[in-house]
Amino acid sequence: MAEKEYEAKIIGFFCNWCTYAGADLAGVSRLQYPANIRVIRVMCSGTVSPHHVLRAFQKGADGVLIGGCHIGDCHYLKGNYMTIKRMTFLQDLLKFTGFEDGRLHLEWISAAEGPKFAQVIREFTEKIKKMGPSRLKIAPKAA
């Protein structure tokens, strides 16, 4: 019998105006994508603090996906300027501390990009499944 595939837990922070609407479009277009992602809707990807991402990892997420509007399309004009600053920095810091930076991903997905949304979810889920459980999850607890 084939070994049971690892079911990764992925947290998605999606902005209300673009990526969440993109997810909606993927839904009404009946596009298939894996159900490993748990979506949290935020008003702007710029409201996602690095704390939320770290907290998600601490609580056992294997991957975190941030979805926002394309640069220049932000509903709040420049909210996503801060998103990319923060997340790029956090990815590099996670890499330095050995937390596997690839588990945090930022993608711009507009409300019209339903197929792209499904594609990104498929690829990201595939990648995280391959990586297996996060190191933070399997780290031995201190005595």
Binding site: I71, K78, G79, N80, Y81, M82, I84, K85, E123
Partner: peptide, 12 residues
């Protein structure tokens, strides 16, 4: 926030 953002998202 900055006047413009020249940063690119990292590839998956």
């Amino acid at each position: 926030l900055g006047e413009e953002s020249g940063m690119e998202t990292k590839p998956m």
